[in-house]
Design a protein around this nucleic acid. Structure first.
Length: 425
RNA sequence: GGAAGAGUGGCUGAGCGGUUGAAGGCACCACCCUGGAAAGGUGGCACAGGGGCAACUCUGUCGCGGGUUCGAAUCCCGCCUCUUCCGCCA
């Protein structure tokens, strides 16, 4: 959520910044709403002050045993007017709030211009794609004989679900364990176990609601509605919702390995084959809650934390700075990590690391006590470290052998009973 | 799921329809005191929003939402959470 003060003080600046990311802010509508709000709020509060005063007088007079009928008469008609004004005001404020909740974050100055993926800027390329002396297969063909079973996933649940068995399932688990161990033991994140179902408030806090409800899976339980988390960014970041933490507690660095659930509405026909785009996938997430002056430093650092996984797995990748138009709703700046997929002969997204600045913190009311002892909004960052399913895809494709077997990356072997080669039985 | 009790500021905790963000204590900050420390003294110390160039001022908030009332932390209704006991369950 944007700071409403910024909109009041520099509406033109905000509008043009939003324009860069392809968002048309209804400035006229906002101004009209604000104008009405101002008038109504002033009037309501004046009326409340009058009412409070009169009530006070009644109390004092009654204590002295004086006659209060005159004052009572004066206040008599005020109630209805006040009630009407209050109702109108709160409706108006709800309207303003709703408007604000649907506005994306302002991009940081360093973010490249552009409206689509094509305008993203490559920052660096790491590792050299392997030269194959045989025809490479994609991960579905490599995986099928080894236990990667899409048909059973489809039977059980439908399209975009996968069933894994045997060494593939174990490799998948090994990847998650390795990532989690790296982020906790090497990079100082605290391992967390979090709910997979959350309430609407949590999703409003991180920005998935109200605008992107269609992308979520939800469950009705009695009268309440819960949502399946689309990423543990939601639970990790919401852990500081409505909290005022001590400045010394910053940065708070959290990580979790959880499944993620996404309806993938609006992506019909894209990546339908294989496990690139699933309704359910595992991810190791990193979240940092930091002092506002440190968030861009933390962003670079987190990109490094995600890169470390790919480097240890010896997977070629590149780092891309997303252009304004390709960034997510809450991000001020985002780097994507794209891993090399030989079968697609291209780099594909495997991690996304974003600085949301105070955008989420404002919705979350997540604050710290600053030098002056005053509560101030924190900055929040999140990033994948990494998406487990896509990493499995990358390993299967990059480590495949001519005979159909897959070499287990060195670093994963301790997690696999020192298994060095996965092959069909 | 059933029964009972409870939710007040950073913490603890009084107030339980009337002039007051809310006693006392702890913590914290400033100053005084002190050779230093401890103890002591004085003052300060919730959050959010509005109006005003400013000094300043107004409004809202005692778990959340509604109601009664001229007036609600205090009364009524609904909900949520926590604690204890019982039941059930991995």
């Amino acid at each position: 959520m944007l700071d409403i003060q910024a909109l009041r003080n520099d509406l033109d600046g905000v509008v043009s910044a939003l324009k860069k990311r392809g968002f048309d802010f209804d400035a006229a509508g906002f101004l009209a709403l604000e104008q009405t709000r101002k008038t109504l709020q002033t009037r309501t509060q004046d009326l409340q002050a009058k009412r409070n005063n009169a009530s006070k007088l009644i109390g004092m007079a009654k204590a002295k045993g004086e006659d209060v009928s005159a004052v009572m008469a004066e206040v008599a008609g005020m109630g209805d007017q006040l009630k009407a004004d209050e109702a109108q005001l709160s409706a108006l404020q709800a309207q303003l709030q709703a408007l604000l909740l649907n506005v994306p974050n302002l991009p940081h100055d360093s973010v490249p211009a552009g409206l689509s993926e094509a305008d993203n800027v490559e920052v660096r390329k790491v590792g050299v794609p392997r030269q194959f002396d045989f025809a490479v297969k994609d991960h579905t063909d490599v995986g099928a004989p080894l236990g990667l079973d899409f048909d059973t996933g489809i039977k059980l649940s439908g399209a975009r679900f996968t069933f894994m068995r045997g060494a593939i399932a174990k490799l998948h688990r090994a990847l998650a364990q390795f990532m989690l161990d790296t982020q906790t033991e090497q990079h100082g994140y605290t391992e967390c176990y979090t709910p997979y179902m959350v309430n609407a408030d949590s999703l409003i806090g991180t920005g998935q609601l109200p605008k992107f409800e269609a992308d979520l899976f939800s469950l009705n339980h009695n009268d309440s509605k819960l949502y399946l988390i689309p990423t543990s960014e939601v639970t990790l970041t919401n852990s500081v919702r409505d909290e005022i933490v001590a400045m010394e507690a910053l940065p708070i660095k959290l990580t979790a390995h959880t499944p993620c659930f996404r309806s993938e509405a609006g992506s019909y026909g894209r990546d339908t084959k294989g496990m690139i785009r699933q309704h359910q996938f595992d991810k190791v997430e990193m979240v940092q809650i930091v002092h506002p002056s440190k968030s861009y430093e933390a962003l670079e650092e987190m990109v490094g934390h995600a890169e470390r996984i790919l480097q240890d797995l010896a997977l070629p990748y590149r780092v891309v700075s997303l252009c304004v138009g390709d960034m997510g709703f809450g991000a001020a700046k985002t780097y994507d990590l794209e891993v090399w997929l030989p079968a697609q002969n291209t780099y594909r997204e495997i991690s996304s690391v974003s600085n949301c600045e105070a955008f989420q913190a404002r919705r979350l009311q997540a604050r710290f006590r600053n030098e002056a002892g005053k509560p101030e909004l924190v900055h929040t960052l999140n990033g994948s470290g990494l998406a487990v399913g896509r990493t499995l895809v990358a390993v299967l494709e990059n480590y495949q052998n001519a005979d159909g077997s897959v070499t287990v990356p060195e670093i994963l072997r301790p997690y696999m009973n020192n298994l060095a080669l996965i092959h069909a039985d």
